[in-house]
Amino acid sequence: MFRAIWDNIKGIYSLLVGMAVTWDFFFSPRYTIHYPRKVVERENLENYRGPLELTRGKKEQDQTRCISCQLCVKACPGHCLKVTKGKESKSPESWLYDFSLCCLCGACVEVCPTGALAFSHKVYMVTTTREALILDLLKDLKERVAETPLLVEAPDSTASQEPSAAVVKEA
C-alpha cells in the first residue's frame, strides 16, 4: 500500500521530468528547414546522387566524352538508358535516359571507360508527367555549355559539381 503510494509519487515526478524536456524544446530553435523559402546547404549535396548527366570532354569542352560503346546500356539493371550511335563519328546521336526507371545504383557511371557519365545534384526536380522524366542528356549538356562555355580545370566526374565557382568568362 505505502509502496504503491510511493511508486505513484515517483511516477508523477517522472511525468514532470518529461514535461520539463518538452518545455525546453518548446523554447529551443526550430530544426526544420522551410523548404520553398530556404534550401539545404550546398555542401550537403556534394555527394548526393541526382539524375545522370553527361560530363564534358577534356579538350573539346562543348562535346561529350561518350563513344557510344553501349556498356552502360548493358550494365543498367533497370534498362533506363538508350544510346544511339551517330552515323559519321563515334559520338552519340541521341542519349535518352528514363529517370522514372533509374535506381541510381551507379553501375553505368562505374562501367564507363571514358568517364562520360556523372551524377548531377538536381534535388529539386519536379514533373507532372512521366514523359517529362525521360531526359535528353545531350540537350542538357548543350544547355550547360551555353551557360558556362569553358571550365578552368579538366572536368572529371567529381570536379564538375560546382561549375559556377570554376568558370572563366570569355571576355
Partner: peptide
C-alpha cells in the same frame, strides 16, 4: 503551433 514548437518545427506557416 504548440505541437510544432515542441517538436522543433514551425507548425502552420
Amino acid at each position: 503551433k504548440v505541437a510544432g514548437f515542441i517538436q522543433r518545427r514551425p507548425g502552420p506557416y
